[in-house]
Design a protein around this nucleic acid. Structure first.
Lengths: 143, 143
DNA sequence: CAAACTGGATGATAATGTCAACCATATAAA
DNA sequence: TTTATATGGTTGACATTATCATCCAGTTTG
């Protein structure tokens, strides 16, 4: 028997975060959406990441990632570098402008996250992180 | 300083749940999406709910709710009942078919949620629920 | 009563997401 | 090694999700 509704709670939370991030991006006129933020973050943290890597990480169709990445390339925030091991794929890197923006975006995200976790005990936060990780695995492994 | 990334974790989890729900809805040929499931659930749990109530609850534009609800009315899953206090708005109710479907959907959702929480301690689950609730409030109150 | 406001419908449009087809390259099998 | 198969990425088509502006009918306030 389920008393709580963690599915609904998760939808609510994710949507609230998305709205908050998009609000901030809008008011700061950054010209990108929360999905671009996620892609930039991944590229900045993952050396030699490819479009397929991001698609796998996000569980999105590669078509969508291609479009997100190509938009960022148009905006001169990201560049492609040849992958010596495979001429089909290309490594993604931030440009100088991209790195500068990424700094801003990190500040913005940290800001939202800090507000989000206000008044929550460190210990509880750790449990939250672990549990959400576990939940994701439970679902993804079942696909 | 942030070490964990609860924003990213929440996006991952919400997306995994959404995919899983839509998969199940697809394989069972139910002809609705996870958003319709949420609307049906809300109507079934909230007597005299209106489109505006749902929009407020979900933090969505009323236009989207109108469309979701009208689709469900087309499918003869929901009906409108006059609101004696306000002729502009109408109370939403499940039809007999809607109630039957709602039973199936509850089973389906519980199934997904039960799989999702497998191997997670009851105590940790409670903390997860509380923390996600708190996080949502922290964000929503800041808008 | 007039002015301002609200619930809901609708048109326009943007962002997100998936699927299928395609091309170039890579890998496995014959 | 030549063929077959699989993979990374691009593109077109399309569905879903979401917002905004506008409108209408009905409500509330001044």
């Amino acid at each position: 028997m389920i008393k709580t509704n963690n599915i609904e709670a998760t939808f609510h939370l994710a949507h609230a975060i998305k709205q908050q991030l998009n609000n901030q991006l809008e008011t700061q006129h950054l010209g990108i959406s929360h999905m671009h933020v996620r892609v930039l973050k991944t590229i900045s943290e993952t050396p030699c990441s490819t479009a397929m890597d991001i698609a796998g990480l996000f569980k999105r169709d590669k078509a969508q990632i291609t479009r997100l990445v190509n938009y960022l390339i148009d905006q001169k925030l990201v560049t492609k570098k040849a992958n010596p091991n495979d001429k089909r794929s290309q490594f993604l890197e931030l440009t100088v402008t991209g790195k500068a923006l990424q700094q801003q975006l990190k500040a913005l995200s940290d800001n939202v996250e800090n507000r989000m976790i206000m008044g929550i005990k460190e210990k509880d936060l750790e449990i939250f992180t672990q549990v959400s990780e576990q939940m994701k695995s439970n679902i993804v492994e079942h696909l």
